[in-house]
């Protein structure tokens, strides 16, 4: 995992396998955001406002797909998510600790 941030970076990607980056400042929709994946700079145009500490998609995520941060599964998408969209409780859900849906639990 990379915890090193270069001066002036907009967002942080924790692992090369991640679908999401974390915003390091409040960023408005329409902004083109730079981040580094495995030493290579990439960019995406934000389609939503993304507050400091919140995530946005750096690649398209199909509905029902496991979503990765830290190189690990942090939950599952409930909608198709375009690259640049804010990723949060409105479009991903937890897989674990789901007493409300007990029975369809997975531990992948």
């Amino acid at each position: 995992m990379s915890h090193e941030v270069e001066l002036g970076a907009d967002a942080l990607v924790m692992d090369e396998r991640d679908h999401v980056a974390t915003a390091l400042r409040d960023i408005e929709a329409g902004a083109v955001v730079q981040y580094r994946v495995g030493g290579i700079f990439q960019q995406v145009k934000l389609l939503d406002d993304v507050p400091f500490g919140h995530k946005f998609a750096i690649s398209a995520i199909e509905s029902g797909q496991n979503v990765r941060k830290y190189g690990e599964t942090i939950g599952r998408s409930t909608l198709f998510i375009e690259a640049g969209r804010h990723v949060h409780v409105h479009n991903i859900e937890g897989i674990r600790g789901r007493g409300d849906t007990a029975g369809r639990k997975t531990t992948e």
């Binding site: 507050p51 942090i74 949060h88 937890g94 674990r96 600790g97 007493g99 409300d100 849906t101």
Partner: peptide, 23 residues
């Protein structure tokens, strides 16, 4: 019979950008 989310992660965790207990 409940979703952990809302209790943990808490409303404050969610406001701070954490979406799920796994994250």
């Amino acid at each position: 019979g409940a979703d952990m989310r809302g209790g943990n992660p808490s409303p404050g965790n969610i406001a701070g950008g954490l979406s799920t207990i796994e994250e």
